[in-house]
């Protein structure tokens, strides 16, 4: 594992055609999911916050694909819809949560930022920047004690490195040999603040390196890279029982949240290179080059995914709102 600050371009894994098709479909599902979700926000079905994962798909899908969810756990931040889909939660239940319905992942009580699912080992969905990092460290410590080789994966953004709890947690994880992978999804912005305006160092691996753990910066746009890195890193963490910090370089296409207009603080020109290295495009091109799919087949797949999700939106709309008495359930009064 390297501690260099240069992006490590790992070899892509030679995955089976079937696997590559599945990964493309999963990333497409996330992209289309967000697309329809934002539409339903504008239609008034979703209220409050909506943080889109569009553009970052290769990070979540790659890393989660490499996890062993029979024993590993995830602690996430508020940009969580994509990760919920990647662990295999049904889009109906995620939409139902966004609509505030009973069938929602959190029974309609949590909303966009607060999806939790014990069965899928998905421990949130946290609205406080950095709030999950120490929790994830505790989960990792518990997994170590339990001795089944499980590890914890903790996702957060570049902004979370500015919180004290990030630094306190990494120190403890290193001190106590916690099997945890901290994944900083560096999408270049903390809300409207560009990386170099909020972080003293812009190579974020360098901010984690002081805790004596292995760090690695990777290309977060190419799922071949994220998946290969994830498989290699997870194997190392299981074996060595040591924490690792990953900086995945990526970009968020939409505003920070649905009301945010990104062109108030960045130009369409600077978005271009990222959009040219779109994660769906990169994998799509690879499938075409390797003659696994044609362009038409990819487009047909996209349409199929979109139609499926439309049906999920409709199904979620059928779920009733929680009953009034549920206000007082699941809380000590």
């Amino acid at each position: 594992m390297s501690t260099s600050s240069e992006p490590v371009i790992s070899d892509r894994v030679a995955e089976s055609p079937e696997k590559l098709r599945t990964l493309l479909r999963r990333m497409m599902t996330i992209r289309e999911f967000e697309h329809l979700g934002e539409r339903e926000f504008r239609n008034g079905l979703i209220r409050g916050y909506y943080h889109s994962y569009a553009g970052q798909e290769a990070v979540g899908v790659g890393f989660i694909e490499a996890m062993d969810l029979t024993r590993d756990y995830i602690v996430d931040h508020y940009r969580d819809h994509g990760h919920c889909l990647a662990v295999g939660l049904d889009a109906v239940n995620i939409y139902a949560e966004l609509f505030g319905r009973r069938a929602g992942v959190s029974k309609g009580k949590g909303g966009s930022m607060h999806m939790y699912n014990q069965e899928k080992h998905f421990l949130g969905g946290d609205g406080i920047v950095g709030g999950g990092i120490s929790v994830a460290t505790g989960v990792g410590l518990a997994l170590k004690r339990m001795g089944k080789g499980g590890l914890c994966v903790c996702f957060f953004g570049d902004g979370a490195l500015d919180t004290g709890t990030f630094h306190e947690s990494l120190n403890m994880a290193s001190l106590w040999d916690v099997p945890i992978v901290y994944i900083c999804i560096n999408n270049q912005f903390s809300m409207g603040t560009r990386l170099d305006r909020h972080s003293s160092l812009t190579q974020l691996v360098d901010r984690a390196a002081g805790y004596g753990m292995a760090t690695e910066q990777i290309d977060g746009q190419d799922i071949g890279v994220t998946l290969a890195a994830a498989e290699r890193i997870f194997a190392g963490v299981r074996e060595r029982q040591r924490p690792v910090f990953i900086e995945a370089l990526t970009y968020r296409y939409q505003g920070h949240g649905i009301h945010d207009k990104p062109h108030n603080y960045r130009t369409p020109e600077e978005e271009d290179p990222w959009i040219h290295r779109d994660p769906l495009l990169i994998l799509g091109q690879r499938l075409i080059e390797e003659k696994i799919m044609t362009g038409e087949q990819i487009e047909a797949m996209r349409q199929e995914v979109a139609a499926e999700l439309e049906a999920k939106v409709e199904a979620a709309k059928q779920s009733p709102a929680p009953e009034d008495r549920e206000l007082y359930e699941d809380v000590t009064l």
Binding site: A321, P322, L327, Y328, V331
Partner: peptide, 16 residues
């Protein structure tokens, strides 16, 4: 305010 965390669902939020 009702003594619960602020719930998301519109009806529960209003009630709270």
């Amino acid at each position: 305010g009702k003594e619960t965390p602020l719930p998301y669902a519109a009806n529960l939020e209003e009630l709270s």
